[in-house]
Amino acid sequence: MEKPWKCGDCGKGFISPSQLEIHWRSHTGERPFTCSVCGKGFAQLIVLQRHQRVHTGERPFTCSACGKGFTQLSNLWRHQQFHTGERPFTCSVCGKGFTQLSNLWRHQQFHTGERPFTCSVCGKGFTQLPGLLKHKVTHTQERPFKCSDCGRDFKSSRELLVHQRIHTEERPFSCYHCTKTFKRSSHLLEHQRTHTGEKPFSCPQCGKGFSSSSNLQKHQRVHTGERPFTCAVCGKGFTQSSQLQTHQRVHTREKPFTCTVCGKGFTQSSHLQTHQRVHQSCSHAEQKRTFVPLNLH
């Protein structure tokens, strides 16, 4: 099909001037369609209309199998695959099936090692564009987006929007398996894998699968020996930030986990749970001592 309408910036062709105009906005950043409720801007009217369903609660697309409603037709199609068990997108390397094409593409990058999105400042590569965009803000200290509720500054409008849900308690992303809600779409996507058992992130060293890229990154440190989280007091390194946080309590003597029975403090919740068994066993022993059997003779 002929595409006579060419973009002057990147040369991409389109079949109509209206499509070219929409495409131009990806270069200019123009978002002429604004949500009257939250002020968020969109490049296309149809995307604004879809977004407004977050505020209205409208779910016009209904599953014929279970009656569950969805804000987008694509979400309904994706949901229906859980009824049919269909995984139409198959990896040509290992044969693994996926419900979404985007998940297949992401998975294939672990076979190829491809990182097509590269930071122009430091050269670091990323498998996905959102990862690159999130990384880029680490090179600048500018935080032009301010929260009107608490005054906190953010590097992007998206970060501000996500933060504001702390104040509004809005959770616009709902799981269509268990109705659990989330503040971020990425958290919803990761949660849904607990229902599907999908583990699209595979370790290139040992082949072990993970439901999230962050869990894969943590696992890979087992192979590399990397310990990126270092204690500023003693210099000891850790593979996870949570491990560093727990270790630092050795220096600060902080004991945030307190026993409700005796008031004793602990540096870790697991230590508190172990301690509480002492009270439980004492309670059972006390019950045995105070029990006096009836004299039936």
Score class of each variant (00 low, 15 high):
residue 7 C to K: 05
residue 9 D to L: 12
residue 15 I to T: 15
residue 22 I to S: 09
residue 23 H to W: 04
residue 28 T to V: 01
residue 32 P to L: 06
residue 33 F to N: 04
residue 34 T to H: 08
residue 37 V to G: 00
residue 39 G to N: 05
residue 42 F to P: 02
residue 44 Q to C: 13
residue 44 Q to P: 07
residue 48 L to T: 07
residue 48 L to F: 03
residue 50 R to L: 13
residue 51 H to C: 09
residue 58 E to I: 01
residue 60 P to D: 03
residue 63 C to L: 06
residue 64 S to R: 13
residue 69 G to A: 05
residue 70 F to L: 03
residue 74 S to C: 14
residue 78 R to W: 14
residue 79 H to S: 04
residue 83 H to K: 03
residue 83 H to N: 05
residue 91 C to Q: 00
residue 98 F to N: 00
residue 99 T to F: 06
residue 99 T to W: 02
residue 101 L to H: 11
residue 104 L to Y: 02
residue 105 W to N: 13
residue 105 W to C: 11
residue 109 Q to T: 00
residue 113 G to Q: 03
residue 115 R to Q: 12
residue 117 F to K: 07
residue 117 F to W: 10
residue 120 S to C: 10
residue 122 C to V: 08
residue 123 G to K: 00
residue 124 K to G: 07
residue 124 K to A: 10
residue 127 T to C: 11
residue 130 P to Y: 01
residue 131 G to F: 01
residue 139 H to P: 00
residue 143 R to H: 07
residue 147 C to V: 07
residue 151 G to T: 02
residue 151 G to P: 05
residue 158 R to E: 15
residue 160 L to Y: 02
residue 167 H to A: 11
residue 169 E to M: 13
residue 169 E to Q: 14
residue 177 H to M: 13
residue 179 T to M: 12
residue 181 T to I: 01
residue 184 R to E: 14
residue 193 R to F: 01
residue 195 H to F: 05
residue 206 C to N: 10
residue 212 S to H: 05
residue 214 S to Q: 10
residue 216 L to K: 05
residue 217 Q to K: 15
residue 219 H to W: 06
residue 221 R to P: 03
residue 222 V to G: 03
residue 227 R to H: 06
residue 227 R to T: 09
residue 232 A to E: 11
residue 242 S to R: 06
residue 243 Q to S: 15
residue 244 L to T: 01
residue 245 Q to P: 01
residue 247 H to Q: 05
residue 248 Q to I: 04
residue 251 H to C: 06
residue 253 R to G: 04
residue 261 V to T: 11
residue 261 V to Q: 12
residue 262 C to F: 04
residue 263 G to V: 02
residue 263 G to K: 10
residue 264 K to E: 12
residue 267 T to V: 10
residue 267 T to L: 02
residue 268 Q to Y: 07
residue 270 S to A: 11
residue 270 S to D: 09
residue 273 Q to S: 12
residue 276 Q to P: 02
residue 278 V to P: 00
residue 279 H to N: 07
residue 290 T to A: 12
residue 293 P to E: 11
residue 294 L to Q: 15
residue 295 N to A: 12
